[in-house]
Every structure is written in structure tokens, then in C-alpha cells.
């Protein structure tokens, strides 16, 4: 197998160029998918026989919760790459993905609470799934805080990578909490391996929204990483030339 692409990632300049080519595609597909998914989900999907229209919050809640967990897994992978291969771009990825993941966790928790009030009768319950999700939020806060607290770039990268790797044990706990324990949160409606427990006109918008959220995540992450790469490489000639070109274009 050819691993050159992987080792090329070690070059910030190469990353900057290749991500510039992907960015427009990702941004356009994110906007298209989210708009189409939201209109289909909010306007055209039929209401649920028990919950009526309040079930529609699923179209935000589930993609956000998926993304919150996937983001954490990617933090851990970036952490391993940073520790083992000493790739600087991995630390940039960890630092820039953590706030997005934290926001997704907040969205999942808030929409869940809004849905929980009419459906369960409570905003918050100390249920295994909900508590594990709250721990995920604090893990994100921990990584963000650690990244800002240590001023030496290299030690901060190491500390954040280790925290990201250790915290990844929380992900299977979130995923399987509904199967391992008695919880108020229902088991997964939507899994990769099985037929969803809802009709097509209900799950199709959910699938579109989920892919849209992933594209949105990728686009925002690349934008943030590109900015951070420029900032860190500000002493190199290519970065200075790129900044000059950007300023020239916008002025």
C-alpha cells in the first residue's frame, strides 16, 4: 500500500494546498444536504403516531449526537498520529476539532432536553446515556482548556493527545449504555447495520441531515485548521505570500 499521502500530511504547505481544493466541495454539499434534509424533515416527513410533531427534533438531535461522538474518535486518532509519528498537523487537528465537537455535544444535550420535557416529562434525568454524554462534554472542555493552559506547544500537544486517547473509552459507554443498563433513553433507531425502526419517509431526511452534518464538520474543521496552519507557519515564505495574496484579494 502506498503511504506517501500520509507522510505528505506532515508538510503544512501540502495540507494547505490540498485542503483548499476540497473545501468548496465540502461547503457546497454541506449547505445543500442540510437545507434539503431540514425541509424534508420539518415540512414533509409525517408526524409520529405518539409524539406528534415533537419527534422532528430528531433531525437535529441525532446527527449532532453522532457527530459529537465521531469527532471525539477523530481527536483520539489524531492524538495517536501526533504521539507516534510526531506530526504537527495532528495537533492542529486536535485543537481545532475539539470546539466543534463540544458545540455538537451541547446541541445534542439541549435538543434532547427540549424533547425530553414533553415526551418523558423531565428536562434531565441522571440516566446512563445522558450522563455519559455530559462526561463527553467535560472531556471536550478538558482538552480545550489543556490546550490553552500549557504555553509550550509541544508539551501541550502531548498532554491533549493523551487526554483525547484516554477519554475515548467513554465512546463505547455512550453507544452501549442503552443496552447494558436500564435507561430512560430509548435504544438506537438508526444504525448502520440494521433496518431503521421507522419508515423511509422518516429516515431518509435523517440520513441526509447526518451526511450534511458530517460535511459541515469537515468544512469547518478544514477552515479552522487552514487558519491555524497559516498562523503557526507565519515565519515561512509560503505562508507570508499566501497571507499577502488573501489580503490583496479581499481589499
Amino acid at each position: 500500500m502506498n503511504w506517501t499521502w500520509f507522510h505528505k500530511l506532515g508538510s503544512p504547505k501540502w495540507f494547505y494546498e490540498i485542503s483548499g481544493r476540497w473545501l468548496p466541495w465540502l461547503s457546497v454539499s454541506a449547505v445543500l444536504l442540510i437545507v434539503v434534509g431540514a425541509v424534508m424533515g420539518l415540512a414533509y416527513a409525517p408526524p409520529d403516531y405518539q409524539q406528534g410533531n415533537s419527534f422532528r427534533i430528531i433531525y437535529i438531535h441525532v446527527p449532532a449526537a453522532f457527530l459529537a461522538q465521531s469527532t471525539y474518535i477523530s481527536l483520539a486518532i489524531a492524538g495517536v498520529v501526533g504521539l507516534v509519528w510526531k506530526m504537527k498537523i495532528a495537533d492542529v487537528a486536535v485543537q481545532q476539532a475539539a470546539p466543534i465537537g463540544a458545540w455538537m455535544t451541547v446541541i445534542a444535550l439541549v435538543t434532547g432536553a427540549v424533547w425530553g420535557k414533553p415526551t418523558w416529562g423531565a428536562w434531565w434525568v441522571w440516566d446512563a446515556r445522558l450522563t455519559a454524554m455530559l462526561i463527553l462534554l467535560f472531556l471536550y472542555f478538558g482538552i480545550i482548556a489543556l490546550g490553552h493552559a500549557i504555553s509550550n506547544r509541544e508539551s501541550s500537544a502531548k498532554a491533549c493527545a493523551i487526554l483525547a486517547i484516554v477519554g475515548v473509552v467513554n465512546i463505547p459507554i455512550i453507544k452501549y449504555s442503552v443496552d447494558w443498563w436500564n435507561t430512560l433513553h430509548q435504544p438506537a433507531t438508526f444504525t448502520i447495520t440494521e433496518k431503521p425502526a421507522m419508515p423511509m419517509e422518516m429516515w431518509l431526511p435523517l440520513l441526509i441531515m447526518t451526511i450534511g452534518f458530517y460535511c459541515f464538520f469537515a468544512a469547518v474543521l478544514l477552515m479552522r485548521m487552514r487558519l491555524e496552519v497559516l498562523r503557526r507557519e507565519s515565519r515561512t515564505r509560503w505562508a507570508q505570500a499566501e497571507v499577502a495574496r488573501q489580503i490583496g484579494r479581499s481589499a
Binding site: D48, T119, L184, A188, A197, E201
Partner: peptide, 14 residues
């Protein structure tokens, strides 16, 4: 508290 299950369906179907 009411516990909801993982099944969703339109009212006509139910």
C-alpha cells in the same frame, strides 16, 4: 416519566 421506544411511525400507519 414516560419511556419512549425506538420505533417511530406515521399516525395513518399505526
Amino acid at each position: 416519566l414516560a419511556k419512549h421506544d425506538e420505533n417511530y411511525m406515521p399516525p395513518e400507519v399505526s
